[in-house]
Amino acid sequence: MMNSILRNKSKLLIILFWILIWEILSLIIAQEIYLPSPHAAFSALMNLLISKDTYITIYYSTYRTLAGFFLSCVTGIFLGIMSGIHKPMYNLLNPLIIIIRTIPVMSIIIIAIMWFRDTNVPIFVAFLMCFPIIWTNTVSGIRSTDIKLLQMCEVYKIKKSRVISSVYLYSSLPYIKAGMISALGIGWKVTSAAEVLSLPKYSIGRFLYDSKVYLEIPDLFAWTIIIVSLSFLFETLLKTIFKYGDKYD
């Protein structure tokens, strides 16, 4: 108890330290358009938090991020398991994954704008950015499966479908979980990026874009703080779900 209070106290001090550095820098620069002061950013944040529109915006952006994330989880885990087990499937998909990994996010966003309605662009982009991470981790997880357990299954003539659900899947769970956590973080980043270019009606990205157009830099900082907080919140939520799952499994 005491320890955790101390730890939280030192965490708080560290945060205060960096806010102080930010304050000093903003005083030195002394131009809000380049670097607003923490005070300006937080009062902009407060103004946002009392507006109803902010919550609608957060709701839609969260929906897009999570939709892209879930799509990538479902396809990434499914195709990852298939590719981990069947080498030809891996060979078929691997070049595609490498290409998706190397294409600049901006190219994908722009092509997605040509293909989809504005609100679906960020979902597609988040999906495409998260999918390779989940896929790669799932493949590594499947390949880490203990060959001795698979041999045991072979001797006892266990059906392939049950080997997948009871052996492969459980063995790769730690890898899949790690992949999901990093994919979720990336999901938030690319969703906002895609929103800035596709400009759906209610989206954090649209507000980021507006704050650039109208030079409302404190707003830009405030929205950024919101994105970071949301990302942190959902990561914690996901980790808690995993922890809970481990405990009561």
């Binding site: 001795k148 001797v155 049950r162």
Partner: peptide, 25 residues
């Protein structure tokens, strides 16, 4: 059936489920 040098049990299952696993089919 096979008793290996090491138990080769599924560590995510309990004792009962480990035996059930090979009998299910």
């Amino acid at each position: 059936s096979y008793v290996f040098q090491e138990p080769r049990l599924l560590k995510w299952y309990n004792v009962y489920e480990n035996i059930d696993f090979v009998l299910k089919d």
